[in-house]
């Protein structure tokens, strides 16, 4: 087992850990993710059918509809959402969804942005990810 550590920029603070799920292409949560089942439902997404529940979601960025904040928050409320979201590019729409879920329900889903090198190193093989996102900086530990 090897362990790696990467630093990131916190969008939404919190702590979480889980198995990684890497989406190769950006996902629009609204219209692309079902908060009842926790699955990717966008038929044009290469990973349609992938389940995000209790995983650490790794994807380049969000996409499309500004309603995605609601869908992320609803998924966190229902417990069908990811435990943490790691992005290559900041996405305010996803971040607000996670912030509102924390405000309303006290449930945390940290959202972190990583640099190109750190992001690229994440997605290889079966990975367990631990996210510790403070007010500004985040530490990501991966075990494979």
């Amino acid at each position: 087992m090897t362990e790696d550590r990467a630093d990131g920029h916190t969008l939404v603070p919190g702590r979480a850990s889980g198995a990684a799920v890497v989406l190769e292409e950006p996902l629009s949560f609204w219209g692309g993710f079902d908060p009842v089942t926790g699955a990717v439902v966008d038929p044009s997404h290469p990973q349609a059918g992938a389940v995000l529940t209790d995983r650490v979601l790794i994807m380049p960025s969000g996409r499309g509809s500004s309603s995605s904040s609601s869908v992320v928050a609803e998924a966190i409320r229902r417990g069908t959402g990811p435990r943490a979201i790691l992005l290559r590019h900041p996405d305010p729409i996803l971040a607000v969804g996670a912030m509102v879920a924390a405000e309303l329900y006290g449930r945390s889903c940290p959202v972190v942005v990583l640099g190109a090198g750190e992001y690229g190193a994440l997605g290889e093989g079966e990975v367990e990810v631990e996210v510790e996102a403070g007010p500004d900086r985040a530490v990501i530990r991966t075990r494979r």
Partner: peptide
């Protein structure tokens, strides 16, 4: 636009 309980809660 309604997207689930969270819309109303907020």
């Amino acid at each position: 636009l309604y997207h689930g309980q969270v819309s109303l809660d907020f």
